[in-house]
Nucleic acid binder design. Structure first.
Lengths: 192, 192
DNA sequence: GATTCGATCCTAGCACCGCTAGACAATCGA
DNA sequence: TCGATTGTCTAGCGGTGCTAGGATCGAATC
């Protein structure tokens, strides 16, 4: 029994190593640089080992996304907890979101740009994803306004942040005005 | 002279064929399916011919993007022209934008998701891109509100639409509520 | 303690990718 | 008619994601 348990532990450890290495490589050099060969070399195993843990590259992206979702939820809750007042919390949330996206571009891509094979906005959506959305909802529900579903409002607010984050990072929006855009967004969208 | 002119014409014609074929293939099967081999086969030339017109695949994406920007500007102006009242025009603009994105996903990707090697938000930004932004600005300037730069407001509105468009297409937002999101967006962001 | 047997891992290879060097043919100007 | 230039192609480079099949190793059995 104990031998099997040890093997299982080692296997789980190796899986964590794969995900961590993929994430690290992606943050350092972008997801294009995360090839199965390079990844295999870094974890000091051969390529096929990756396929004994994940169906393919897509699933590895998905694993990074799930890890990222948990961290993102933590980051957003920490940002809002440190802020005062309704308006302050909403602004802090928006900044926290964009900050996370800027600091963890590869994770953000895994979550919201790339195909990680994860189901979103469904019943079988993984818990970390639901929780990240919940973290947004918690703060935004109180500024949705009368007669507006908090969920719908959160989706819209999220979409706006997502647009800012992605367009800014791909240099389609000049980065220097981000703060003003955030303030305008909060001012207009939120009912304070 | 006339011989050279004919050759030049034929060359230009072939370039149009490449761009049109790339776009068609991308809309049919996605950009991943647009490989230089397949593209070459479809235009009935060998692969290297592509490289006598474009530096590489990236530039082909850029060419599709420019074509798409022109069409998008036309589509948005048409949408607003057919609408009545300030609010009607803004709503029509938003719908027109999302409609274009949904109907031309590959072109939309070339414009706003993929790397086509084009400079955005700069002095040397190609005219079609500037004009597409101008088409947004024309309608949105009048609802920016007092003391808010129309350009900044347009960027934010655009980012929100972009977020809705991309998150919806990748199934991260349920598509059935798009119309309600648009109405909420217009209601809140625009100063009517 | 030797031997079987199953799990584990690696080598080698598939078909495909973007891109390019160099051979070849067609066309042009002298 | 001949050389030079232009245009196009074949073939190939190093890379990709992924997998088949063989080697190896350790645990369990005799």
């Amino acid at each position: 029994m104990s031998v099997q348990e040890r093997k299982q532990r080692e296997r789980a450890e190796r899986e964590r190593l794969i995900v961590a290495t993929a994430r690290e490589l992606a943050e350092q050099q972008g997801w294009d640089a995360v090839t199965t060969r390079r990844l295999a070399e870094r974890i000091e195993y051969s390529q096929p080992v990756l396929y004994s843990h994940f169906r393919g590259k897509r699933e590895i992206i998905g694993a990074v996304a799930l890890q990222g979702a948990t961290e993102m939820a933590v980051a957003m809750r920490a940002a809002t907890a440190a802020a005062d007042g309704t308006r302050g919390r909403v602004t802090a949330l928006a900044r926290g979101y964009l900050d996370f996206a800027e600091r963890n571009p590869a994770v953000y891509d895994a979550l919201f740009q790339l195909d990680g094979g994860l189901p979103y906005a469904q019943e079988d959506t993984p818990e970390p994803l639901k929780d990240a959305f919940a973290a947004l909802l918690e703060t935004l529900a109180e500024v949705a306004g009368d007669g507006v579903e908090p969920g719908l409002f959160t989706e819209l607010f999220w979409a706006s942040l997502h647009g800012i984050a992605t367009l800014t990072r791909t240099r389609r929006l000049p980065p220097e005005d981000t703060e003003r855009r955030v303030e305008l967004l909060v001012d207009r969208l939120a009912v304070l």
